[in-house]
Each structure stands twice: as structure tokens, then as C-alpha cells.
Design a protein around this nucleic acid. Sequence first.
DNA 1: TAGATTGTTAATCGATTAACAATC
DNA 2: TAGATTGTTAATCGATTAACAATC
Lengths: 206, 206
Amino acid sequence: MVTQIPDIVIGRLPIYLRELRRLQDEGDRLTTSSHELGERLGISSAQIRKDLSHFGEFGKQGTGYHINYLVDQLCQILHLDQTWPVALVGVGSLGTALAHYDGFKLRGFEIRWVFDIDPTKIGAEVNGVHIQAVDELEATIAQHEIAVAIIATPASVAQDVADRLVAAGIKAILSYAPLHLTAPSGVHVSYSDPVTELQRMTYYLG
Amino acid sequence: MVTQIPDIVIGRLPIYLRELRRLQDEGDRLTTSSHELGERLGISSAQIRKDLSHFGEFGKQGTGYHINYLVDQLCQILHLDQTWPVALVGVGSLGTALAHYDGFKLRGFEIRWVFDIDPTKIGAEVNGVHIQAVDELEATIAQHEIAVAIIATPASVAQDVADRLVAAGIKAILSYAPLHLTAPSGVHVSYSDPVTELQRMTYYLG
DNA sequence: TAGATTGTTAATCGATTAACAATC
DNA sequence: TAGATTGTTAATCGATTAACAATC
């Protein structure tokens, strides 16, 4: 029986995975518990057990969860037992920073195509990746069947870029442009806007 | 009577504000409606009306919301009728990109102090701001009563940096380090981790 | 065996939505 | 007046938590 799992549960799995990897790196134990994990993440142990129980029984009464095993399971669930090749659009300062970020590879992603509209950038390289003209976006994405893209363009062109990415077959977009993007259902969009995040916190400051 | 307003409501206000600013920039109308705003943001009109009603009655039956007025009100609520000076820790490629980002000023923030631990960077400038040694962090934050900070350091030192920021008086932290930070209650922490965001989406991809 | 911890149930808590009287 | 849209209520829907039998 296929049960629809809430988005909010899916959203926590990468957080669990990230903390489990830290436990692996610390390397001093083979198992952990929902209590320990919750303690480290500020999440209740009941919620962690409930979340995981949507996908199977990964723990053992009395001993908890085998860290390596749970990491493997979460990677399978999140489809991270592969490296997702990523297209990046926009090589301004943020795009360049993302292209150089070495935290992608180890966690399942690799920026392998980079696009910009600026003729003085096209043909150059960023972190070993050739910068292509945005004109080539559709052909490249279709040819390589790329599913994941990052938008790091100015806000003014982000919706247009998103439309073209979607038309070319992209299924998941992470956008750094500070505006809501419209995309057809079946295409997943997530956002990162530092100002929005800061504004959420200033409410609570005198 | 003071009612506790849910965090999730507060979290949507900056989104409303951002879209209202877009309507201002488009400049072709003085008013909007919860229906229009919801349409543009993929949020139900009922939710928008409910959210706003926590803070007052900002609309008029039949005509909707006066855009400029609602922007003003939201800015007041979010304490954005001032510019918040921000301290940035870490001047790697991401920190540098943030220091150069010109989207802060217009929306209520300004990176005015920058810290790094690398002696070859200390004393240089990034976007007109002097790079200080991390040693000077406590004194500078206390002296200027800085409330908001951004962490763009490697994960390995992020918790230590956060502890020092908090001890010096910082009340809101936006962290780009890919790990959960522990902070005392009363200190607000938000996160931006591109990999976590991408991992949330790959679950839905074949 | 005794202690620890799971997976699950039922209860609680909170958020969203539908509907509509009020009124511009 | 007629149409549009608010603010609010009550109903629905969904998420979190507390508690505990099962069992390692």
C-alpha cells in the first residue's frame, strides 16, 4: 500500500541524514538513539521515531539505530545513492561561490554545467567547468537529461530562466532570486533568500 | 491583549512584503486583494487574510488593500522601518558574495562589519568594508550593540563562532554552515544549506 | 533479569479552509 | 444599487506529543 508521506516529514530527513553523517565522522559509536539525535537537533525523539516509521523499522528496541545502516536507508529514500548532476544558471558572485562550493560532491550533487548571458564570461571556466551561453541551455539540458538546476541570476530574469529550464525538462529548481517562481505541478522549487530569512527574525527583536 | 502569533505566520509576512514591493515597482495600481496576492504566491486568499488579521484590519471591503499602506504596516511589524547593521563572519567565496550582494540595503540590512581568521585577508577590504580579525569580534559587537550576524565559515568552526557571537550580544544568526547550531532561547537562528534544500527535492524525483 | 529504546496508538494541539455577514 | 472583498467564525484537516506494550 502506498501512503502519501507529508512534505514536512520529507523535509526533515536531510537534517537527520546530515547529523548522522556527523556522528559517522565523530566515529566513536556504531549506534545512536532517537533521543540522542533529537537532543542534538532540537527535535523531539517521538517525532524522529514517527518520521522514520513512515519508511520502515530501522531501529532495535533497547539499542536504537545503527548509524551506518540508517544513513544508507535515508540515502536510498532520498535518492542519494547516486550523484545528481546539476546545471547552474548565472555566474555572478553568488553563482561563482556556488560553483566553487565543495560541499556538493560528498552529499550527492555536482555542478556540471554553468550558463551565463554575459559574452565576456562565456567560454571562460569556473572551477573547471566551461561557462556556456544561455542560448545553449535547452539543448544541453535535453541532451543530458538534467533534472536539477540552480538559479543564481538577477530577479528580473529568473522567471524566464525557470520557464526555459522547465520546458527543457528540469524537475527541481533551487532559486536564489528573491521572488516567487511559478512552475507547473510536478516541478519542485525551493528558495534561498537571505533577506527573507533575516526579516523573519527581526520581528522578534525589539 | 497580547496574543502570541504563530512563527509560521511571521514566516510568511516577508513573503507578502516582497510581493507587495514588486507590485509597487510594477506601479500600475494602488490596491491589491488577498485573492491577487494569493494567486501570485501560490497561497490561499483565506490564509493571507487570516495572517494579516492577527495584526489589525488593513483592508477595505470591496476594494482590498492599499499597497503602500500595507507595505508600511508590514515594515513596522517586522521592524524594518530601520536599517539593521549586520556582522559577517567568514570571507570565503560565499562570504565575499554576501558582502557584495546589493539586495540587503533596500530591504533593511547592511553588512557593516566583516571578520575572518586568515591573516592574509585581515586588513584588506571587501566591498568597502574593512576585514577584521576574529579576535576583535567580541569587542566590536559589544561596542556597537550589533544584533544580527551572518555565519559563512566552515562547518568545523561555526558552533564556536556562534557561541562567541551570542556571548557578545548577537540576537539573530543566519548560518550558511551545514549543521545545526545550538543557541540559548532568545537567540534566533536560521539556516541556509543548498544541499539540504536539494535533498528535499530529490526524494520526489524517480 | 533489568534497563533501554523502539514503533505505534490515541489524545492533544495547531493550522488551514470554507463560508458568509458586513460593508465599501 | 450591484459587485467585490474584507475579517471572522466554525469546521476540517493535519501534525505533534505522551504514553506504553513489545522486545532487544
